[in-house]
Structures are given as structure tokens and as C-alpha cells.
Amino acid sequence: MSPAVLADGWSGTSAIGYPALFGGVLLGSVIPIVPTGALVGAAAAVAITSGELSLPLVVVLSAVGALVGDLITFGVARIGSDAAVRWVSRGQHPERLEAARHRFTERGWLLVVVGRLLPAGRVPVLLAAGALRYPWARLTPAAAVACLLWAVVYAALGVATGGLFDDPLIAPLLAAVVVLLVGAVSSLVSTLLRRRRERLPAGGPR
């Protein structure tokens, strides 16, 4: 990214947009009350329709904000490991926790990446990783890759939907709505699949 792009990206009203994007993604990554994907999609739509924001900067700042938030969540789980273990172990057999520890040892990076991309998968994975003392040296690069992929995916959704309209007001609204719908559908499908897996042992042959 050239210095000219950076200079242009931080001029004018975008000086407010970038901190708002970064802060919103960071807050939503620590306290999941902000629809971070919708923020990224809306910012990407603004970038391609109004030119007020730089699309590469939108992706970078979103990824960095998400990464900082994920590391904070993981750090809290590690610092308060006893409380985190109790939270993770609710309704779980010790054998399951041991299996989770083994999975993190063998392919923890994959669980971190998938957890960030799947709806409602990020927080449980990070809490489990912290409670199971997953190493920082392995968690950080995996989380960085996951957050970058996440930012690219939601920015692409914003670009695709925002490109339908040239209006800088309609485009981000449409992008945010589409991202929220995609997230809701994905969450519903994930919930239905999980419930189906939970019912299979009970209904299967004994």
C-alpha cells in the first residue's frame, strides 16, 4: 500500500470513519453486541461508492481490530483460567475436555480459523483455547490469518452488494442488511446441524 493511498485514505470525513470502524470491530470482538460483519460490509460499500474510504484500509483495519479483540478475549480466558474451565466444562464430561485439549494440540490453528468464520463459533473456541492453555505463539498467527480471511469475506460481500447501487447512502445499508441476513441464515443452518448431530446417538441403534 503506497503512502499516497494512506494519505488519501485518512483525509476529510474518513478520519472519523476509520476510527469508528476499528473501534466498532474491536468492541464487537470483545463484547459480541456489535454486528461487526455488517460494519465491515457497510464500510466496504462506502469505499467503492463514495471514495471516502480506501477499501484496502477497510480490510486492514477490520482485520487488526478483530485480531486485537480476539487476543483480548483469549487473554481473559487464560488469566482467569479456573473460571474459564468451569464455563467450558458446564454439561461436559471430563473425557470431552480431554478430547478438546488433544484437538487443540494437534490442529488448534484450524479450530481458531474455523471458529472465527463460523457464526457463534469464535467466542467458544477462544474461551476453550484459553482455558486449555493453548500457547500464545500458536494462537496469535492462527488468529491473524482467521481475522484477515474474515475481513476479506465480509468486505467482499459489501463490495458485491454495494456495487448494485451508486448511492453512498443506499449501498452501505444494503450491504449491512445482506451481511446480517447471511449471518442469520448461517447461524440457523449451524444450529439445525448441531441439533441433528445431538439427536443421532439417541435415535440410532443400541
Score class of each variant (00 low, 15 high):
residue 29 S to Y: 11
residue 39 L to I: 10
residue 31 I to Y: 04
residue 112 V to P: 00
residue 182 V to C: 06
residue 158 G to N: 10
residue 19 P to K: 07
residue 182 V to D: 10
residue 23 G to P: 07
residue 58 V to G: 06
residue 66 A to Y: 05
residue 191 T to K: 05
residue 103 R to D: 06
residue 71 L to V: 13
residue 99 A to G: 03
residue 102 H to W: 05
residue 121 G to E: 09
residue 146 A to V: 03
residue 181 L to E: 07
residue 122 R to H: 11
residue 59 V to W: 09
residue 89 S to H: 03
residue 159 V to C: 13
residue 181 L to F: 12
residue 71 L to P: 00
residue 147 C to P: 00
residue 101 R to G: 05
residue 25 V to D: 12
residue 97 L to I: 11
residue 120 A to Q: 03
residue 165 F to D: 09
residue 29 S to V: 10
residue 119 P to D: 12
residue 181 L to M: 06
residue 78 R to I: 02
residue 60 V to H: 07
residue 68 V to Q: 05
residue 139 L to Y: 15
residue 113 V to I: 08
residue 48 I to K: 06
residue 20 A to Y: 07
residue 79 I to R: 13
residue 199 R to E: 13
residue 169 L to T: 04
residue 153 V to Y: 00
residue 186 S to P: 02
residue 26 L to D: 12
residue 140 T to P: 06
residue 95 E to N: 08
residue 119 P to I: 08
residue 46 V to Q: 09
residue 93 H to C: 01
residue 194 R to P: 05
residue 194 R to S: 09
residue 86 R to S: 04
residue 121 G to P: 08
residue 10 W to K: 01
residue 205 P to D: 15
residue 204 G to Q: 15
residue 118 L to Y: 04
residue 143 A to I: 01
residue 68 V to P: 05
residue 140 T to A: 05
residue 91 G to Y: 12
residue 71 L to T: 08
residue 126 L to T: 02
residue 187 S to V: 01
residue 69 G to D: 02
residue 147 C to Q: 01
residue 76 V to W: 10
residue 7 A to H: 10
residue 133 R to A: 03
residue 109 W to Q: 06
residue 88 V to G: 02
residue 21 L to K: 15
residue 67 L to Y: 00
residue 110 L to G: 14
residue 48 I to P: 00
residue 168 P to A: 11
residue 102 H to E: 01
residue 89 S to C: 01
residue 25 V to K: 11
residue 148 L to E: 00
residue 20 A to M: 08
residue 78 R to W: 00
residue 164 L to P: 08
residue 90 R to G: 07
residue 50 S to Q: 08
residue 163 G to S: 11
residue 205 P to A: 03
residue 167 D to M: 09
residue 160 A to T: 10
residue 49 T to H: 15
residue 151 A to I: 00
residue 116 R to W: 11
residue 43 A to I: 13
residue 14 S to E: 08
residue 16 I to A: 06
residue 108 G to K: 02
residue 178 V to C: 04
residue 4 A to R: 07
residue 190 S to A: 13
residue 2 S to T: 14
residue 77 A to I: 14
residue 31 I to N: 05
residue 178 V to N: 12
residue 28 G to P: 09
residue 161 T to W: 09
residue 101 R to N: 04
residue 111 L to R: 12
residue 117 L to W: 10
residue 35 P to C: 15
